[in-house]
Design a protein around this nucleic acid. Structure first.
Length: 269
DNA sequence: CTGTTTACCTGGGGGC
DNA sequence: TGCCCCCAGGTAAACA
């Protein structure tokens, strides 16, 4: 499940490899993932090149030299990786860009939830992205304001709400709650804002350093697995690495959540 | 405001 | 081997 650290890892890899490279061909195998308001994505990209690749929350943002702009979201099972070898697309490959240097960018998505959306040039990217402030760039005043506006929200629901704070998904929400030593159902109004910000930053940065978490489908832009799954403390873990207690699974904010009943204050079934 | 449910999809795993 | 059912969890929309 690509969350902020996974998308950031992909963006960094793609920037190095495909910026300024001529796009020779775009093959769309499953048109359902492309939203282009009647325009043809292959025609828009043909002989153009990307001049910038960015990220906001879990969204990728591509801009070409001629001004075409794309917002890409990988949702649950989207993979975005490069290859310069002969590549035989399987049934889950929905889009393939071929660059002038022979490199290919492959979009593969088992569940077809992801989207490539062509957005108009009039407004800033943010206008077309349904998300609040990026979790890596939010400052303490902004975070404290959000907490003040939603004090009754459960900590985990707060972290997962993309309209408040963009980029955190189920894996990192559980890891952040564990690092804070708080049950995910703790009202966020009772959480220290400074501590919360430090913890969010520390976990996301550490995960980026380890190129993200591969628990199911996520791959880096080079098609490799990330490494942060080896450093997870509660998500899909059996025993607490701090105290050895059995990790409990419960539903919070509609998601399966992993909690150490001993280390996380306020734990309730 | 808060919360829950459903839909979108496919594959993997458990039970039998 | 195979069938049925549930589960995985990002987002939008419908609803209480």
């Amino acid at each position: 499940m690509p969350e902020l650290p996974e998308v950031e890892t992909i963006v960094r890899g793609l920037r190095q490899a495909v910026l300024k490279k001529k796009i020779k061909k775009t093959d769309v195998y499953f048109p359902g993932i492309v939203v282009a308001r009647g325009r043809s994505l292959p025609a828009l990209l043909r002989n153009d090149s990307f001049c910038s690749i960015g990220r906001h929350g879990k969204y990728l943002m591509f801009t070409t030299n001629k001004g075409t702009r794309l917002v890409v979201h990988l949702r649950m099972t989207g993979q975005l990786f490069l290859t310069d070898k002969v590549y035989r697309p399987d049934k889950h490959v929905h889009l393939l860009l071929t660059f002038g240097n022979g490199q290919r960018l492959i979009y593969r998505d088992i569940r077809k939830f992801g989207r490539w959306t062509v957005v108009p040039p009039e407004k800033e990217f943010r206008h077309y992205i349904n998300a609040g402030t990026d979790a890596l760039t939010i400052n303490i005043n902004e975070l404290k304001t959000l907490i003040k506006e939603h004090p009754a929200r459960k900590l985990k629901a707060f972290l997962l709400d993309q309209l408040l704070l963009a980029g955190i998904g189920n894996i990192y929400a559980d890891e952040i709650c564990f690092a804070l030593e708080l049950d995910p159902e703790t009202p966020v109004g009772k959480v220290n804002g400074g501590k919360l910000l430090d913890t969010i930053r520390a976990i996301l940065k550490l995960a980026i350093k380890h190129k993200g978490t591969s628990v199911s489908d996520y791959l880096t832009s080079r098609g490799a697995k990330g490494n942060f799954q080896n450093l997870l403390k509660v998500y899909k873990q059996k025993f607490c690495p701090e105290c050895g207690a059995k990790i409990v699974r419960k539903k919070v904010a509609g998601r399966s959540s992993h909690v150490c009943p001993k280390c996380q204050k306020g734990y309730k079934k």
